[in-house]
């Protein structure tokens, strides 16, 4: 069945949110979500890198790996593409917009090891998306991730001064909040479904 790109885009944000249903990008999600501002910075960096790398990895996979019959090398190639792209962006931003570099720069190295980025590239290969679908999926997943980390950062700032059982402070509480968010997002699942 051919899904329209717009539906994939919407579904990637809400019904199959990369973080809340596929659990990708949890590490930086938990460690950065202490403040809204830094979450926003990282979130935008993720949206940008995810959109671009899903396009790049699609092209690399279908125009280089498949014709050369070295599909089994996809993991190495994908991670190289992501790392190289992030490095390139870092250099460009540093050169042309120091202001943006200071607000976004520290998050860029973090992104290379964000499993959501690699995850999106792997998913779009497994699901056989076309080029436009892949880009839509990448952008949607990035936005979905941004949405989730912003929501968590907001909630964490609210509960900071409340009483929380000692063992649950920090990661435990964040996980429970995320769980409740995931429950809430299940409510979207009737709207559109992609695998």
């Amino acid at each position: 069945m051919e899904l329209s790109s717009f539906i994939i885009f919407l579904a990637a944000i809400f019904t199959s949110n990369i973080l809340l249903t596929n659990f990708l990008g949890m590490c930086s999600f938990l460690s950065v979500s202490k403040e809204i501002e830094s979450s926003l910075g990282l979130g935008f960096a993720v949206v940008f890198v995810m959109t671009m790398t899903s396009a790049l990895n699609y092209l690399v996979y279908h125009h280089i790996l498949v014709p050369m019959n070295i599909v089994y090398l996809q993991y190495i190639i994908f991670i190289l593409v992501i790392a190289a792209f992030v490095q390139l962006i870092e250099i460009i931003i540093e050169r042309f917009s120091p202001l943006l570099y200071y607000s976004l720069g520290i998050f860029l190295p973090l992104i290379t090891v964000n499993c959501a980025i690699l995850g999106v590239s792997l998913f779009l290969i497994i699901r056989n998306y076309s080029f436009v679908q892949s880009v839509a999926y990448g952008a949607g997943s990035g936005l979905g991730w941004l949405l989730a980390i912003l929501a968590l950062a907001g909630i964490r700032q609210k509960v900071k001064e409340k009483f929380v059982p000692i063992g649950l402070r920090g990661a435990g509480l964040s996980l429970i909040i995320t769980g409740i968010m995931a429950l809430a997002f299940i409510g979207f699942s009737g709207v559109v479904i992609i695998q």
Partner: peptide, 13 residues
């Protein structure tokens, strides 16, 4: 999905 978050949270707790 949500139960995975809850289970891990409880384990850490």
């Amino acid at each position: 999905a949500p139960s995975a978050f809850f289970m891990l949270a409880i384990l850490i707790w």
